[in-house]
Design a protein around this nucleic acid. Structure first.
Lengths: 332, 332
DNA sequence: TCTTTACATGAAAACGATTACATTAAAATA
DNA sequence: TATTTTAATGTAATCGTTTTCATGTAAAGA
């Protein structure tokens, strides 16, 4: 059914070497033979076996996408961005998510040792020692997508969590004239969470507002967690005017608390989020949040990785920080 | 860095054939040699090169996932389900989406001829002649996820669109006592759209309600399309009481129309959707819709495909229909 | 004890491409 | 014209595994 290089060579009356060279557009082959081979290949619908090719060249045009988890729009958009670029360059994307037991480190090792992929996009909330050790081996070109520039020995892309959070809190203080701002952070082993909290605190301090420890609660980035944390905050004697949740999912939890406690947003208290997920624009009132260009993140990661996979020379590692954009809704 | 079978053989003092047999747990190898090989392999951290293995066996444990498009939760959940099963069976998932120009057919052919994947999960709104022709070749085991059982020569999984839509409309008529029900369908080349519309029409007819052609508008499954169609419907002299949108995205469009036309849901008119996407539960009022177990869809597709990839005997093709579940919100 | 059978292992081919090296023919130089 | 250089193509090795076939040894049967 599927034809091989041998058969094509026979049909063309040349050696397989010439076929290979012609198809790879090497200058040593004459125009005429190239033409002949190309025409015949098209006619017989010959497509080089990528497995065989990768096997012998030790290069693969498959990108391994390692993610902590795969559900929700966030990851989908990353995948979408990566896929878009891969398609343009005739690359493929294969993925691996951490499944409960399997750690991110295992996933990377698997990709590095199995010969399937030629490069890795690693998306991770934080780079621990184990991952750091593996990345240092530099077995395969890798691009890290993380909440913070955390590792210098490979290319990286991070969201500007700090400045995003800072800008939002600054906006709340100076434009909205709000001083009593609480924060539900993400899990504090997560770099995005850490940076967002830092932005929140520094914006307060820079505006001469003391940080109130009672108004900072560590959440878990889930709706349920946001609901629990916001309920706690809203029951305080000294209740904050606005709750800044470190992501939109937890902000949605705040909306649920409001409904259950019979409080109105934004009159009784305000809510702000981070991420600008799809659902945020349909919350009533629309959520004030920070838009993160996730799709772009994926695209950039793939673009850099493919460059790296194509070049043997090792120029300096790129570290890109992607800015966020303040979206003002009616929630504060 | 990465060790090969040859080196492992040397270290073990046996031939590479024995290594291969030991690792594949063939009965012809004695317990002692097996043990020795396994221990040494673990010690040296040897992992067979999957590329080489696939190359020689002509089998691949990579599943090709072909989708019309990859964004939105729907596809994410499919991917999630597939990935879950793949992980358990040590399979990988690689994907390919139709990128504007590239057709689904091309994507399938690519997977079938390149030797990378050993099986395909094809998700498509409809099976046209081109796809049908390719699938008939039976080059690789394939599972089709589609809106309708449309092709008998491979395994297939479909959502029970017809009965879902029927149940919803029946509920509107008999429980909610509503007779004037409009429908915004999906694109009519899409099987899901066709089946949902059929369910709508038959439910009306079976309840003795004549179908009003003016109340059926072909939409495009997008928020914007839903908004346009619902605006048209709401401006009719003879305005329907409820708009049943063929998916939640278009139902969201109805909410936007309502806001712009200053109409209240459900008092001025009601809305129902299909899919039960994440955002639906945060609409105000919560959308009445049909929950589709998308994650399950992906899981089942992968499970069947892996079975098929492991067996050479070709038993009968499976055709599974997955039921939907009515979610009643406050939108009607 | 000698032959046969079964079993465990090894040697080598195979998979489909790329590529270093060899070869041939034509063009350029002496 | 003889020799060297260059250009186009062919030959064969190679990648890491699986697998067929051959081989040798131990157990079973005579």
């Amino acid at each position: 059914m599927t034809i091989t290089i041998k058969e094509l060579a026979q049909k063309c009356g040349v050696s397989i070497a010439t076929i290979s060279r012609a198809l790879n557009d090497e200058p040593s082959v004459t125009k005429e033979t190239k033409e002949k081979v190309l025409v015949m290949a098209a006619q017989l619908n010959y497509k080089p076996n990528l497995l065989a090719r990768s096997f012998v060249t030790k290069k693969s045009n498959i990108i391994g996408l390692v993610m902590p988890d795969i559900h929700g729009e966030f990851f989908m958009e990353i995948i979408h961005g990566v896929d878009e670029v891969c398609y343009l360059h005739k690359y493929y994307t294969i993925f691996s998510s951490s499944h409960g037991k399997r750690s991110t480190a295992e996933a990377i090792i698997d990709f590095m040792t199995r010969g399937i992929v030629g490069g890795i996009i690693l998306m991770t909330p934080a780079i621990d020692d184990e991952i750091r050790k593996i990345l240092k081996l530099n077995q395969l070109p890798t691009v890290v997508i993380s909440g913070k520039r955390d590792f210098d020995r490979c290319d990286s892309i991070s969201i500007d969590n700090y400045n995003g959070a800072y800008a939002l809190v600054d906006y709340l203080i100076n434009i909205k004239k709000i001083k009593k701002i609480a924060h539900i952070s993400g899990p504090l082993k997560n770099n995005d969470a850490i940076q967002r909290q830092r932005g929140y605190q520094n914006a307060l301090e820079d505006n001469g507002i003391p940080v109130n420890k009672n108004w900072i609660i560590e959440g878990d980035f889930t709706t349920l967690g946001g609901q629990a944390a916001s309920t706690k905050l809203l029951k305080l004697k000294d209740r904050p005017e606005v709750i800044f949740a470190a992501n939109d999912m937890m902000a949605i939890g705040c909306y649920i608390s409001a409904r259950l406690l019979n409080l109105k947003i934004p009159t009784d208290f305000g809510v702000a989020g981070f991420d600008d997920i799809f659902a945020s624009q349909f919350l009533n009132p629309r959520l004030t949040t920070l838009h993160v260009p996730i799709y772009e993140l994926g695209k950039q990661a793939a673009t850099i990785l493919i460059q790296r996979m194509n070049k043997t020379e090792l120029n300096e590692f790129k570290h890109i920080t992607v800015p966020t954009e303040l979206i003002t809704g009616g929630s504060v």
